[in-house]
Simulated scan of single mutants.
Amino acid sequence: METLRRSQYDIAVIQQVKPDAKLLRHIRNSRVPTPIMIIARDITPAGVAEVLSVGADDCVPASVDPVELLARLRAIIRRASGHDSLTLQIGRLTVNVDRREAYIDGKPVPLTKREYDIVELLALRKGQVLSKEAMLDNLYAGQSEPHGKVIDVMICQIRKKMRSMGIEEPFTTLWGIGCRLNEDAFIPLGARMNGIDGSVHPAARESSIPVTAGIKMVPSGGLDML
């Protein structure tokens, strides 16, 4: 419970012999909003119905195919982030999760694999500020993490590429806290000139702190993994 409260997990995966609503009730009664998937060895329709009714986001058998499992996890995370399709649209920015490509005004942004991961994660977590540690955790979960400066370098590279496509400040940094996607930077030019955004935000100081696009899970054993 303390791990779920302190960390910014995308989803918690609980492995059980049978779907058991007791732990789930405890988590939900503690007002922990993290999406939860139950993986159980012995599943019955009644057991699935019970855990879904008390707050599970999905319940699947232990025999579930890995491809299906990953698709279900990604779908839960997208819905929890307010997205209902494989295409994330934020103004001039389009992120195609299925093809792992990002576009500005319909033109592909030439991103490396890790750079794309950062853009996808920031898009999924739009409006949220992620710490540098959380970004590293998401990007390299289950692997040996490089020095934090690698995040700075990748954010700088993404920023440079987006600036060349007309996006001046794609990221906003809150010093000592973390980084988020600057949604105002992606407002369509026509809408900006017509004042449709309706507000003017002071320019935020920016640095290179990125986010991740992997799926971060905490099984009941408490270990992070992709």
Score class of each variant (00 low, 15 high):
E2T: 15
L24D: 15
I14D: 08
P219T: 15
D105T: 11
P210F: 03
L139K: 03
A141F: 06
I215M: 08
T172L: 01
N29R: 10
L111F: 06
G47F: 05
R31D: 15
N194H: 03
L24P: 14
F171E: 05
E50F: 02
S208V: 00
N96E: 13
L86V: 12
D98A: 15
S164V: 05
S207G: 08
V64Y: 02
T112W: 01
I27K: 08
R74D: 12
L181R: 04
V48D: 03
R125F: 02
R31N: 14
L86T: 14
E133I: 06
P33G: 01
P61F: 05
E206T: 11
L24E: 14
T3V: 13
P210Q: 04
D20T: 08
D152Y: 00
E115Q: 15
L121G: 15
R5E: 13
I209T: 07
R159C: 08
M225R: 11
E169C: 04
A80H: 10
G127V: 08
T172H: 09
L174Q: 12
V218S: 08
L93N: 13
P19D: 01
H83P: 04
I36E: 09
L69K: 13
R192D: 10
L181I: 14
T34S: 10
T87P: 00
R192W: 02
I11D: 07
S144L: 14
R180D: 05
D105V: 09
W175R: 08
E169Q: 13
G198I: 08
T112S: 15
I39P: 12
M225T: 14
L174W: 00
G222M: 08
